[in-house]
Each structure stands twice: as C-alpha cells, then as structure tokens.
Amino acid sequence: MFAELLQYMLSGLTIGAIYALAGLGFSIIYNASHVINFAQGEFIMIGGMASATLTASGVPLPLAILIGCGGAMLVGVLVAKFAVERARNASTVTLIIITIGASIFLRGVAELVWGKDFKRLDAFSGETPIQLMGASMQPQSLWVVGCAAVLIVAIGLFFNRTLTGKAMLATSHNRLAAQLVGIDVKRVVLASFALSAALGAIGGAVVAPITFSYTEMGIMLGLKGFTAAVLGGLGHGPGAVAGGLIVGVAEALGAGYLSSAYKDAVAFVIILAVLLFMPNGLFGKRGTERV
C-alpha cells in the first residue's frame, strides 16, 4: 500500500520538477514582458535534442548541455528581439499567436537539423534502480529533482541578491517606474527570455534520458508548464514551482488510483477547481484593472 503510494509520488515529483522549471520559465518572461511564451516548450526541446545528439557524436555531456543551453538562450533572445519586441504594443492574443508561430518555426528547424526520430541520451549515472522502501526509482530522477532544486534556488538568489535580478523584478512590478529610474527595460525583456531559455534547456537535458528527446517533446511539457504557472499564480515564481509539483503528483496519483487514460484530465480538473475559488491562482496577487 505505502510502497505503491511512494512509487506514485516519486514518479510524480520527477515529472513535476520539469513542469516546475517550465512554469518558472513562463513566469519569468511574463513578469518582464507580460507575454505568455508558448515557445517555452521548444527551449526544453532544444536542450534535450542538443545534448542527446552532441553526446552521440562524442562531445562530453557537460559541454553538450552547455552548448544546448547557449543555443537555446540565443534562440530565446532572437525570438524576443525580432518577434516579441517589435510587436510590443500588440494585444495579448496577438503576442500569443506570435509565440505559437515561433514554436512551429523552431520545431520545423529542429526537424531539419536533427531529424524526426527519437534520440536517446544515456542516464547521467547509470540505470541501476534505487530501491526505497519497496518503491524504486531511476537514478536520473535524482538528477532531475536535484538540478531543478539547484536552479530554482539559484533563480531565487539571482532575483533577490543581484542588481540585474532586482532590476528585472522592479520591471515586473512597474514597467514605467523602472524605466524612469534608469532600468533598460528592453534589455530586461531580452534577459528574461535568455534566462527562461536556459532553464528550459537544462530541464530538457536532464529529463531526456527518461523521456527521450524528439522535436515534439516540448509541446506537452510546455503546456503543462503553462498550467503550472497559472495554477501557482502567473508571475509568481515559487507559485509556478509549487504548481508544477502539484500537477506532476496529481497526474501520477490519477494514473495510479483512478485511470491512466484520465490522468491528464485530473490536472485540468484541479486547475478549474482552483480557479473557481481563487481566480488568480494559488499564490497570485489580486490584480486591479486600470481604467
């Protein structure tokens, strides 16, 4: 009984950690630019594909992840510069469509560069399962959860301790005021895309040994990341992390105790229920509309 529950929790936390990273990516960009970046999943894909294909051609793993990460950041900055920034004054929906266009474009390019087949990336530290009170987990799960935790803490420190981070935070609170005190808002937007892309790419690399990498791997992960960000309250970093873990665990429990076919529905039912009582997510601040 307990072993079963533990097994589900372990699976849930692993995948939840990736949702959390994706959700955090959504939140960072949202804070800086009020854009919902539907290409967030593609950053994950770039990280996963780059690390899998580069290691296959002999590049050492850490370097491969670094290259993937750099590539994703570059792509993120380009998307921000040439698509999002130019359409700054467009409506929310228009911006969403632009990022959707970007995600289709990136998938197309990835298909051309890497091909359509699934890529395998060896687990970072072997595949001997770790036994834990009757449940078992892949060592890679520890990598996923560990990396996510480190990144989340690092992001927290970055926003609260560094000048750049504080500038980005200030921009999210009040764009105009930030501009007035001399913060280069445009650069903040670019930085936010780069940061989110890096988060996504590292997430993609650590999760690749579990999920395999392929050009469409980002679609579902991105969608769940958005779900996580909204559940936690858009723009609320820790909220996105909590949201990701909740969605991951709910899915795993749903698959275990209810029905595996309805496991995706479980996550969305939870969100609808939460939004019904908390229209701004679990931790979101109540917005006031300016007339």
Partner: peptide, 17 residues
C-alpha cells in the same frame, strides 16, 4: 488490462499495478 498514453513519459503507475 492496463493502458498508457502514446506520449506518456512515465508508466510506472500502471506497471506497479
């Protein structure tokens, strides 16, 4: 008689059963 989703990345729940 279990099922899994074509895009699932983890089926340990069903296999545990």
């Amino acid at each position: 008689d279990e099922t899994y989703g074509a895009k699932d990345t983890d089926v340990t729940a069903q296999l545990t059963k």
